[in-house]
Nucleic acid binder design. Structure first.
Lengths: 121, 121
DNA sequence: TGACGACATCACAATATTCAAATATCGTGT
DNA sequence: ACACGATATTTGAATATTGTGATGTCGTCA
């Protein structure tokens, strides 16, 4: 039974939305809806500074939207599974929308280009 | 040239998320997922000042999340139909989640109480 | 018309967010 | 151990967002 005036759902959902409420971060999520990527990919695909890329990823990670995995020198990010029901449904809907019709156009093209033969090298 | 990297979808979706990325505003949306309400309802159900209520509703309205209708002295708010595909899917999923399992607990109870026999009187 | 209630907006201080450049950290190869 | 590349964090200044109280606007009813 919910006790506080604000239920957990609303609290965590607003947290999620706040993280997604930034164009750059949403573009990151959109790219991630196609699969795991490492930091350098976001830098080149989105044309961000290294510092900014890292920080936005940090915000998303803090909000539980993404999770990181280290592989050698590189850190790979992927969408994190959501525990809260509302968050889960929202992220799933978002990913589905992004995966279906490519909402990213040039971002994805740049990404694929940079993913060429040997990415991250 | 300006890499116009961001598609319309991403831009409008981040706008939506930004508006939803606040606990108070999300509680408003949650209440609205049950139907149309007038300003005084939010005030009492959420325990907000009149000024704050009005401003948060203004933010939501500005973001295209809600729309207003005047009826005599009162102004009624309801969720606005979304044009962009992504926004539409997201808001629908959110409303469905809120409508199903009451994510609001006390907010709704307070609301129903204040909605008694003759609301807004 | 004037008074009142509902709602919107303004003004202000507090707090938070933004970005880029500089700096720090961590893993890898030498 | 050292140097280097990849990523993270800190810094600081500009900007945005927040909530509150005061004020403005609009509609209603007498």
């Amino acid at each position: 039974m919910p006790v506080a005036a604000t239920s957990l759902d609303v609290r965590s959902a607003s947290r999620l939305f706040k993280a997604l409420g930034d164009e750059t971060r949403l573009r990151i999520v959109a790219l991630l809806s196609h699969g795991e990527l490492c930091v350098c990919h976001f830098e080149s695909a989105l044309g961000l500074t290294q510092s900014n890329t890292s920080r936005q990823l940090g915000v998303l990670k803090n909000a539980g939207v993404v999770e990181a995995r280290r592989d050698g020198s590189w850190v790979y990010y992927r969408l994190a599974p959501q525990m809260e029901e509302v968050c889960k449904a929202q992220l799933e809907a978002l990913v589905a929308a992004f995966a279906k019709r490519d909402a990213l156009g040039e971002d994805v093209e740049r990404l694929l280009k940079s993913l060429g033969p040997n990415a991250c090298k």
